[in-house]
């Protein structure tokens, strides 16, 4: 029986490419945990932003492999060696994805807006000095600037644009990235969120957070915006808005 996720011995490598580590495994575990939901979701277009070794996009293609509706996989990376290694990893597993060398999703934005059903992303999340962000090679896989948020904060609005109405985003976040603040930012854009996997290693605490558009939150946002415009927000309403915002971690709605 073929393996349901990528096999480490078949993952290609290069000195300038980030090898699959705890964060990659946690992200793939989150996809596995969501497997039946993903199959039901029937994504037509899937995208990985920053594919590195190709371990994650290969696993996603294997997990969704037998979906009757079929899916199209695309993956980007800024690092040319990562593109090469991903191509080898995909081939070794007998799956296919279209690869594009670019920064985040530059060149896809616009035409691809609103069309992507699943985005997976293990961003460069390590807090580093600002000047380490944007360097070539393997540094691009981890250097995240202040709080590790420099690149994450660029990816989030792009993901919002690319995701379809039913689209899902799975993202790796470190405790230092302040995941609750990231979730609040996404909530402002109408997204609900849920931690699919949380894992602590000796060095870091990883969260795999799933985001999806929630019509109730969109309505709530519109209402609170119009209230703010009219300047009649009462203290009690403001309090309840705060409460509901803080309760997102416990949301157990569907996804």
């Amino acid at each position: 029986m073929p393996s349901m996720i990528a096999q480490i011995r078949l993952v290609s490598s290069h000195p300038e490419v980030y090898e699959p580590c705890e964060d990659s495994f946690a992200l793939v575990d989150a996809l596995l945990a969501d497997r039946s939901k993903l199959l039901e979701h029937q994504p037509a277009l899937c995208l990985e932003i920053g594919c590195g070794s190709g371990y994650v996009i290969t696993s996603l293609a294997l997990i969704l492999g037998h979906a009757e509706s079929g899916a199209y996989y695309m993956a980007t990376d800024i690092n040319p060696y990562a593109i090469q290694v991903t191509s080898e990893t995909l081939e070794a597993h007998g799956v296919y994805a279209e690869l594009i060398r670019t920064n985040i999703a530059s060149g896809l934005e616009g035409r691809l807006d609103g069309l992507v059903d699943v985005i997976v992303c293990n961003p460069p999340y390590v807090p580093t000095p600002e000047d380490e962000v944007g360097r070539d090679g393997i540094a691009s896989s981890w250097a995240g600037g202040e709080n590790g948020r420099r690149v994450i904060d660029k990816i989030l609005p792009i993901a919002d644009n690319l995701l379809s109405e039913k689209g899902w985003l799975y993202m790796v976040l470190l405790a230092e990235n302040n995941p609750s603040e990231v979730c609040l930012q996404m909530r402002e854009k109408g997204f609900a969120s849920r931690i699919v996997v949380q894992r602590s290693t000796e060095e870091e605490t990883l969260h795999i957070v799933k985001f999806w558009r929630d019509p109730d939150i969109q309505i709530e946002n519109n209402e609170s915006r119009s209230k703010n415009r009219n300047g009649n927000t009462k203290a009690s309403e403001s309090f309840f808005t705060q409460m509901s915002r803080l309760s997102f971690w416990k949301r157990d709605s569907e996804q």
Binding site: M74, T102, L108, E109
Partner: peptide, 21 residues
């Protein structure tokens, strides 16, 4: 590159307004 991908790509150069196809 497949033509489905080509159909999703446009020129991303700053200032370009008509980058597709």
């Amino acid at each position: 590159m497949k033509l489905l991908t080509h159909n999703m790509l446009s020129s991303n150069i700053k200032g370009v307004t008509n980058g597709f196809p």
